[in-house]
């Protein structure tokens, strides 16, 4: 069902813009008036803007149904997937790129920085039992297969107040990924990942703001995962302490 003409209202979209060569410390904002209905999403509106008003507007999207994690951005200061975020009520909506991740252009951020944190954790999400040997995939792509709740949208990292001031913090997504391996190793050795994340810049940097879990569109609850990771790290340290230098 589509919205009828009588359902439509005009909303002003204030959209962050950045092009190569712009002052790196400033974002400029362009405004677009868009007719929206009760079922219009932010992504619908951005597509309409690019199609009809400004073809240079840069943003990512793919699946349109919250499973690819590509369209993460901030709407009125709060993180979400544009494809399932309805246009809020009110005359004006601000749309900005995810925070704490380098901006490439407009609403597009450099997700490589986000993925690099998963590399540090050894990409423990990849599980041999879940790969499909018969699948014909491009070289290097097979290792990127995922079958977890986390859709790697980067929204948790954007919402985190610690990541907002310290770029060295590993971030909620990588920590939650590490916990998934530790919680369910499936034949892998969780020791190295636990030791990697048992660090002041990793598991112990979280200050329990829980914004990552509140913002996560996929039910991952990274904050709880971080706390359980801490519990495992503390228990491992206690075991080492009372075993007089055991090898874990």
């Amino acid at each position: 069902m589509t919205d009828t003409a009588t359902d439509l209202r005009t909303t002003r979209f204030v959209v962050a813009r950045r092009n190569e060569g712009d002052d790196p410390d400033e974002l400029r904002y362009d405004t677009f008036d868009v007719a929206v209905g009760p079922r219009t999403t932010i992504l619908d509106a951005l597509v309409a803007i690019r199609r009809e008003l400004d073809p240079t507007l840069s943003f990512r999207h793919s699946c349109f149904h919250a499973s690819c994690g590509t369209c993460g951005m901030r709407v009125n200061g709060r993180e979400g997937l544009a494809c399932v975020t309805p246009v809020p009520g009110g005359a004006e909506v601000t749309v900005e790129p995810l925070a704490n991740i380098p901006i490439v252009s407009d609403l597009v951020v450099d997700m490589n920085v986000f993925y690099d944190e998963f590399d540090e954790a050894g990409r423990p999400l990849v599980r041999a039992s879940e790969s499909i040997p018969a699948a014909d995939t491009a070289e290097g792509i097979a290792e990127l297969g995922r079958f977890e709740d986390c859709i790697e949208c980067g929204i948790c990292l954007s919402a985190c107040p610690v990541a907002g001031s310290d770029p060295r913090y590993v971030g909620p997504a990588a920590l939650a990924a590490a916990w998934r391996l530790i919680d369910e190793p499936r034949g892998a050795d969780p020791g190295p990942v636990l030791r990697l994340m048992d660090d002041e810049q990793a598991a112990w940097r979280c200050h329990l703001a829980w914004e990552c879990s509140e913002a996560c569109p996929s039910g991952v609850d990274p904050a709880a995962a971080i706390m359980r990771l801490r519990g495992a790290a503390a228990a491992a340290r206690a075991r080492r302490l009372f075993s007089f230098g055991g090898n874990r």
Partner: peptide, 20 residues
């Protein structure tokens, strides 16, 4: 089907927008 190669990434030089 011929396999394709993933090209090396070029790091972004743009800063992130941080709340600080």
């Amino acid at each position: 089907m011929a396999s394709t190669t993933v090209e090396p990434r070029r790091p972004s030089t743009a800063p992130a927008q941080r709340r600080g």
